[in-house]
Structure formats: C-alpha cells, structure tokens
Design a protein around this nucleic acid. Structure first.
Lengths: 209, 209, 209, 209
DNA sequence: GATGAATGAGGCTTCATTCAT
DNA sequence: CATGAATGAAGCCTCATTCAT
C-alpha cells in the first residue's frame, strides 16, 4: 500500500505544479522538488512527464463523468430542470472544491498544442452531446423552445466554463448555490423581462436545427 | 519606413506560427524561417520571443477594443438590443475573419503562465465591465430583468468565447449571422417557452447585485 | 551449495544477456529479469555489472586455456602438425558449441575500453606465445620454414579469430572439420601451387626472427 | 570555408575520443571538451552523437575503398601477386598512418551492438568478396591452388585484421614493409618447407568450393 | 543594419548502485 | 539472505539569446 501512496503523492504534487505553471512551464524538477523525491523515483512511477499529465487529465475526466447524469425525462418538466441544475451543481461543486484540477482543466483548454487536443476535445464533445440530448428532450416535452441545439449547447457549456475560468484565475465569486442558480436562470429565462420580450417580437418559433 | 515594414512582416509571420503550433511549441527558428530573415535580425526588432507574443496579444486586444462600443441608452430598448447585437457581431466577425488572431486568443487562454495571465485578465475584465455596464443600463431602462450582473456578464462572455473556441479548433459552424442571432436570442430569452417559465415560477424579482 | 548454484545461475543468465546485446546495451535489469532474482540479490553475489563481465571473461579464458595444449615435439613432424590441428579443433569446437561464450569473446574485442583491454591482451598474448613456441619448435624440427614468428603467429590467430567472428555474427559456415582442415591447410601450405611458388622465387631462407 | 574547417575539427576530435574510449564510453561532453566548443555547437554540425560516429565510419570505409583495387589478371601471375601485395600494403599503410581511424575500425569490430553491425558487416563483406574474386581469378590462372574460397578469404582478411589489431592496441610491430611481406608470404606459401609439405601429403587437389 | 555561427543553461530520461525492511 | 524502492550522477539533446563579422 505504501507504493500506491507514494505514487498518489507524486501525482498530487504534479497536479499542483501543473495547475500553477501549466504543462509546458512545469519541469520534472519542479515536480520532484515539490514531492521531495529523487529524480529516479519519479520515473519509477511514471513513464514520462507527459504520462503524468495524461493520467491527471484522465482522472479528472473520469471524475467529471461520474458527476454528469443523463437527463431522465420521466419526471416531468420540473424534474428535468432539477436534473439540469443538479448536473451543473455537481460539476461546479467538484471543481470548485478541487482548485488544482480546475486549473488543470482550464490550462488544458489552452490546447492548440495538437497533442492534448484530442482528449480534451473528446471530453467536451461528450459534454456537448449530453447537453444537446437534454435540449431535444426538453423540446419534445414542450419545456424548451425551438433553438439551434448545436449552438445553444455550446452556449450553455460556455457559461459554465467561463465562470469556472474566473474561479480558476483566482477571482472571488459568489458561492456555488448562487452561481448555479444564476447560471441556470440565465440559461432558462434569458435576460429580458417578459413584456419586453414580447414587445421585441421574441416569440416566433424556429426549427430545432 | 522600410524598417516598420520588416517589423510588421516578422510580426505577421510570428502570428501565423503561434496560431498554428501554440506559443510553447513555436520556436524562434520557426518564425525566422517563415519570415525569411536571419536569426539576428529577429532580435534586432524584438527583445525576445515572448515580447513578440505579447505584442501580438496587445494588437489583438487593441483591435477588439475598437470593435466593442459602449452601449448608448438614448436610442431606446430596441436600440440597446441592436447595439448589443452589433457588438457581438463585430467581435465575432473580426475574429472569424482573422483566424490566426482567433487561435492566438484561444491559445492564450491556455497559458496559465501567470505572467501573461495578467494581460489576458485585464482584457477580459474590460470586456466584462462593458457588459456589466450594458446590463445595468438595460435594467435601468426596464429592458433587462434583475440579475447578478457580475455572474451574468461572465455568462454572456462565456457563450461567445465558447462558440469562438469551437471555430478556432476548426469545427464547422453555421455562418456568423446565425451564430450571432442564436447567441443573442439565447442570452435574451433563455431556453424556456414562456408558459413553462411562468409555471416554473421564474418570475420572482431579484436585486441587481 | 545452494549459494554457489544461485551465483552460477545469475552468471549464466548474464552470459546470455551479454552475448545477445553486448556489454553496454545490457542492463542489470536485463540480467535479473532473466535470472528471476531481485536487484539486491544481484549485488549480493557480484560487486558490479562490470565484475560479472570480467568473471565471465575469466571463465572463458580459463576454459580456452584448458583446450590449448603446448606442442610436444617428441612425436615427430606428423605429430606436431596433428597437435596443432588438435589445438585449433579444440578451441573452435568449444566456442562453436558455446555460442554465448563465443559472442562474448568477440564482443570483448570491441571494447577498446582500456580497462578490460588488459585482460584480453593478456589472454591473446598467451595464445600468441604458445603459437610462437610451436613455430620455433617446428622450425627446429625443420618442419616449418623460417618465418617471423611474431608476425606469423598473429596471422595464425587471426585466421581462426576471423572465422569464429563470422560464426559469432550468425553467418552460415561449413562444419567444424572442414573449417579446421581448410584453416590448417591454408596456414601450412599457403595459396600457391608449388610450381608457381618456386617460379616466383618463394624459396629464399630467412631468419626465424 | 571557416564552416567546413570547424566541422572537420570537431569530427577529428570525435575520432580521437572514439578511438581512445570506444563509442559507448565516449560522451558528447568528452568530444566538445577536446574540441573546445560549446555543447550547442556540436549539435549545430551534427544531428547526434551517433551521426558523428557513422560519418567517421563512412569516411573510413570510403578511404579504404579507394585503397583496395580489384585485381587485374591481364598482367600475369607475377602481376597478380604484386597487385595483392599492393592492396594489402595500401590498406595497412593508410591505417597505420592514421592510428585513430585504425582504432575506430577495430573498436567497430566490437559490434554485437546490432546497430553498428550492418555497416561494418557490409564493409567486410565487400572486402571478403573482393578477396574471393581474386582467389578465383588466381585459380583460373593456375597460380592459386584449389581452396574453399569462402573460408580462405576470411583467413586472409583475418591475418591482416589481427596484425592491425595488435597495432591498434599499441603493440610495437616491425615496419610496414616487413609486415606486408611476411603476411603475404604466409598467405601464399604457408608454413611448411616444401619437402615436408609433400611428405605430409599436402598435394591433393580439392574443389574450389 | 543584417547575418548566422556560437553559446550554455536547462530539459528529459536512464541506470548502476545502495539500503531499509 | 532476499527484496525492490529509492537514489542521483550522468547522458543526450533543444533552443532562446548573443555577438563578431
């Protein structure tokens, strides 16, 4: 068991280092210094610097996957909204409680580095797909109006990501409940007061695609 | 004037290189090869690789700042919405037409490099501030309902960023008009059909902060 | 006795590893993996990787020394030649039958590692000395013509070494008897047909040194 | 032109280092220290440590190839022998005058390292092939008796290699002319005095293969 | 100004050896 | 005795930056 502990320790230190300086600016030296182990020890547990990063990302993705549940429509419109809220709440809660992981995820976004992209892209794609599914479900139940699900699902993900990004950057933010409520509220109701909405003619139907 | 041209040429090449491979994976060699100048020449015009990146980012920020106009409330509610749309349209249009700049911006997000975080943070802060201002303005005009402007402005920025991110990653997207209309629509009206909104009790007033 | 067995086992495994990959490319990990012992165990029996190699070389040299007999001149010229043949036969036979040892010997030549040059040099020196002795003996018996024994003994060793080298490299070769006969024949008679030899004036006497 | 000089200088230093310590035990640090250049400079001229070694080997092989001429049979038996002598003389002369190259070649023999093998093997194969060709030629002219050309050509190469090996190891040897004459003499006439040869029945014909 | 050869700090990784259990 | 985790010196290579021409 000692062995797993050691490994976990190095992994945790690597996470902190990566979260602080980003992948490229972090050196193996940084990691082992923080972990208090010798250079060789690091390579005893991990094949390479890159491997560690991948493992952290994998862990993070796995964690998030357990947090996001597919929407079950059988519980009615109130239930659906509650489930959406629950998903957002779970994801944000878990990342806010794990700042290093959050920073890692946001640093990951950095992408453009072609090699990290695939994993990250896959992850977000799945998130987007789940969101799209929820939108279609909601539309079928006549809870959600006709929207371009592709674009709107990105908008939803985007709102969450941006708030998390600010938190990752160290910005002071209201506590989670308020964040979630406000994000959800924004997503569901938008900005307008109803009268204005109708006055502005925002009531035309459009196709789901 | 020859001097300024040369400088601009190197800068443009650097932009392309950074956009293609990201900051860390781009080498000075890549840049001078693309620019067709000698290594020493590069350092004649720029203090360091980092300087070039910073300057590009500055240029980008300056460009975007010219695109985003402060909302003028004197033109009534319809006018305010139109101005918001115009802002979003301008930002997206300019970045979609300048893919390298777009990629640079998105790559920048990645860094977490602490040193250019600051610049990026400042930039987004200004954007957020402008958005907040618009929200307050809209609320005063009773066009916009009471929201937590801090959070909601992030949500608005987030939706735009995410769509742009997908474009930067090379994803096929609908054309700009559709994107802007959908994003704006989402932001203003949200997802719900009005009946559901009222049924779900989404009509309570809350303070602007 | 258990102890000696374990030691011999590790040694044997090391031999195989060295023979397969050469000294430098063989790691202690390779050896212990093949031997199925722990890393620490290896160092319980041997001071270092180098020590093992040295010991193997020593064993090899010792083995070869038992194969090479000093020529006994009392059995007449036919006997002397037969003894030379027997020596060559013994050496080649033993190495051909022990491919790993053969490869080790040939790999050893490679080193130029200054430190085990000495051992190798000593070994060959003894071989050369034995050969020189035989030549002098043969010359005294008027079986062998006057030659520069120093050079010619190297030539003799060289012919054997080269053929063995090819075998070590995995080249297909005729079987041992043919090899030995041909090598011996070459060494004793040379290449020329007798008539040509005389025609070319290859009959002058020269001193033994 | 400066450029080529620098390159040649580093190459020469590398040769000395490799010759002294062998490929594996030589580090890039050793080479640049001897050459008096910075680490980066080394990699400015050569892609890797291995590349330098390969280039040296290639140069050596190219050099030797210019020294070894295919035997021209039109000049009669005396001419053929003279050409053989000339070949041996040229090869030995050039290597004796270039001790580092000689040591490199001999260290190369070390082989068993699988990666160097191919080039070295090819080189020796060509040498052996040339020798075989000469033997067949000589046999056709009835200058050379029937021998197993495959084995005997190895023997010939072996004699030369071994003498060179001793020189590489720093052994004092007679000067080149004596060496060549003795080696050639050994190869052509063998060891026996003619009377003994016939007495021992060394006159039977055998097939060339 | 322009060039490009030279620099050397610093990065990643391997592996022979040690030592606490 | 046996184990295998831990060590850290040492190796190879890259690349941003400098400087003599």
């Amino acid at each position: 068991m000692r062995r797993e502990e050691r490994r976990a320790h190095i992994l945790a230190c690597a996470l902190e280092v990566f979260a602080q300086k980003g992948y490229h600016s972090s050196s193996v030296s940084d990691i082992i210094k923080k972990a208090g182990v010798a250079r060789g020890t690091f390579y005893l547990y991990f094949k390479s610097k890159r491997t560690v990063f991948d493992e952290l990302l994998d862990d993070l993705f796995a964690l998030l996957h357990t947090k996001v549940k597919r929407i079950d429509p059988s519980r009615g419109s109130v239930g659906v909204v509650a489930q959406m809220q629950s998903n957002i709440d779970a994801v944000m809660g878990c990342l806010i409680d794990n700042r290093p992981m959050l920073r890692l995820l946001m640093a990951g976004v950095a992408g453009l580095d072609s090699s990290f992209d695939k994993k990250l892209t896959e992850f977000y794609d799945r998130l987007v797909e789940l969101t799209q599914h929820s939108l279609v479900q909601g539309h079928d139940m006549k809870v959600i109006r006709s929207v371009n699900v592709k674009i709107v699902s990105l908008c939803i993900i985007g709102t969450i990501k941006e708030v998390l990004y600010q938190i990752a950057m160290g910005r002071k933010m209201p506590n989670r409940e308020i964040l979630v409520k406000e994000i959800l509220d924004y997503g569901l109701r938008g900005l307008l007061v109803p009268e204005t909405a109708s006055k502005l003619g925002f009531l035309s139907k459009r196709s789901t695609r």
